[in-house]
């Protein structure tokens, strides 16, 4: 299906502004890549080209998008095998003459074409107890220093594109772990609440025992794909693992707590 004369640059065979897109088409029952030869114009991103296919060659091509500016996290897909936002991936970053593959996220069941059923994520979100604020100051105001909120603010940059969830091998390669592993996005949500300077909740046992923090082997793929460049592993997951150590593996802090409780 591919043009074999790959050594001839794109301009020679198909004119300067044509590209070969291998787009995965299919649904829950299966599917395969389909080749579309499309025109593209200067400055375009992958989503533009997908939209052109949709408008001219395949009206029923399923794809999610909203903002087209990397803000909503709707257009996640795997482009040449790597999780990317389609709206933030410029066509000019690809080698001319090469086929570009666009596939739906692998970890979630396909609904149609590039659209996957991401309800796993919404289910996991429900399992995390919400923010539990401590009382306000005596004058009715809530004061928090900027330096205290900064850590959690980094995590709140998350646009819920779910690409970290998609790339995490714990569930990507092992469907059975979906029951007891919430994925980096939601372990990070726990970190966000735990580090919130005014939160009074305790979600460390939940993270360890029910939401699978120990399954993470800190191989950092989540961090590599995050379009918001959040340091998920270094700033959320590892600090959470350290907090688990405080609680469960560090007899010194455990002893300290026991003594404090007795008093």
């Amino acid at each position: 299906m591919t043009d074999v004369s790959t050594d001839s640059p794109r301009s020679a065979s198909k004119g300067p502004d044509m590209v070969n897109m291998q787009v995965w088409r299919g649904d829950a029952s299966g599917g395969d890549f389909k080749l579309y030869e499309v025109e593209y114009r200067e400055g375009e991103v992958v989503l533009d080209v997908i939209h052109r296919i949709q408008a001219t060659q395949a009206n029923d091509l399923g794809v999610r998008w909203n903002c087209k500016a990397g803000k909503c996290g709707s257009c996640s897909a795997e482009i040449n095998g790597l999780p990317r936002l389609m709206c933030m991936t410029r066509m000019s970053t690809f080698e001319p003459g090469q086929d570009i593959t666009v596939a739906p996220m692998k970890t979630f069941p396909v609904m149609k074409d590039l659209v996957t059923d991401v309800s796993f994520n919404y289910e996991m979100a429900k399992r995390i107890p919400a923010f539990q604020p401590k009382p306000k100051d005596a004058d009715g105001k809530r004061r928090m220093a900027q330096r205290d909120v900064e850590r959690s603010q980094e995590f709140r940059k998350c646009i819920e594109c779910f690409m970290c969830q998609n790339v995490c091998h714990v569930i990507r390669d092992h469907d059975e772990n979906k029951v007891h592993f919430a994925g980096p996005r939601f372990l990070m949500r726990i970190a966000e609440l735990e580090m919130h300077p005014h939160d009074t909740g305790d979600r460390i046992p939940l993270a360890r025992e029910e939401l699978g923090l120990p399954y993470c082997n800190i191989t950092k793929c989540c961090t590599e794909v995050c379009p918001e460049h959040i340091h998920i592993t270094d700033n959320a997951l590892i600090p959470m693992k350290e907090r688990v150590v405080d609680r469960y593996f560090d007899p010194i802090t455990r002893l300290g707590r026991a003594i404090r409780r007795k008093r």
Binding site: N80, G81, A103, V110, D117, S119, D175, V179
Partner: peptide
Amino acid sequence: MAVTTVQAGRGTRPAQNLRVDR
């Protein structure tokens, strides 16, 4: 897709490495 239905089902696409970089 409603929040009220759980479908933590299997990925549909076969496990396959599509990366073309090194």
